[in-house]
Design a protein around this nucleic acid. Sequence first.
DNA 1: CTTATATGTACAATATAACGCACATTATGT
DNA 2: ACATAATGTGCGTTATATTGTACATATAAG
Lengths: 184, 184
Amino acid sequence: MEEIHLVFARNLKAIREKEKLSLEKVSQLSGVSKTMIGQIERGESSPTLTTIWKIANGLKVSFSELIHEPQPETEVIFGEDIQFLTEDHGKYIVYPHFPFQKDRRFEIYRIEIEQGGTLNAEAHREGTEEYLTVFDGELIIRIQDRDYRLSSGDAIRFKADRPHTYINPCDTVTRLSMTIYYPR
Amino acid sequence: MEEIHLVFARNLKAIREKEKLSLEKVSQLSGVSKTMIGQIERGESSPTLTTIWKIANGLKVSFSELIHEPQPETEVIFGEDIQFLTEDHGKYIVYPHFPFQKDRRFEIYRIEIEQGGTLNAEAHREGTEEYLTVFDGELIIRIQDRDYRLSSGDAIRFKADRPHTYINPCDTVTRLSMTIYYPR
DNA sequence: CTTATATGTACAATATAACGCACATTATGT
DNA sequence: ACATAATGTGCGTTATATTGTACATATAAG
């Protein structure tokens, strides 16, 4: 996921050049200093909400035009490029393949749990659902004192707006796909 | 026009309370400090683009949900409440009745020009148009060496993407309505 | 009532956004 | 070529966004 302020930077510069405006002109139109406009365009600064507003008004463009990242029709994410996260002393590894995007309502992760690895997850927002598919090993999902044991090839859907626990009961690694859906 | 960060503040607090989340929880979800969340909600801070992003992601809400100001069906603007601007040593007074809004494409001002008042306006963006209606006095609009003289009751539309000048040639005040339209 | 826990605010310290000015470089005109 | 203006960047200063800790108040538990 590209840094948001770099998206902003690129969009701002594109709009400015499309309108054939100088930094000075944008500065006058928006009431934001020329220096700051330059820094923002170069991605050296993450503008404040009020300055974003000033710029949007000065340029007569919508907020979303400035933060919109053009989505390619096809997108490839290579595993080695993903910045993963770990829990439970490195035994629980999360690969965020498709993080949340405002216009979608879900995000997709890949999870690896080493032998004996465990993770206690807090309750998510009301109505949130999780969809898990196990690819390798065994997985126990504990939800409200109920245990569900899944093997490779199994899948489960459950309401994630309550605490739940992921457990790898075996001595082999467990690998699974996780999709989280946020309603509304 | 209400300050944008106050709109953000209200929306954030509304969403948080709707979800029954504490400041602490929002902090964990977003990775922004509890203190900062509190300050933003109280309108004491104008958050940075990156923190706006963090909050939007943590709460799984769209950017626009946080900056959207619910528009009442009917809105009354009292002249005395308007913060006016002056040019030409106070002889040219601007009352911004309906400033630009992203989803609209125009803004409406009321202008008063004292006797002998003059304003040289820079060229606006390509395609911009102005619609003027004179209510009192006389007005001369100078566009590319052409003078257009208007009296009370007259109106004019012209392309404002070039320099133009407003002149009150009389010894009485000139009052007019100005609508600026931004294409695309 | 007392103790513990949670929730929101006040405060001091730090990081960084924002500004004004000066500089280097590039266009523009004569 | 030269002067002039315009454009974008570097720098020091100021303003403020952000954080962590401590505090106050409320809420729940015993």
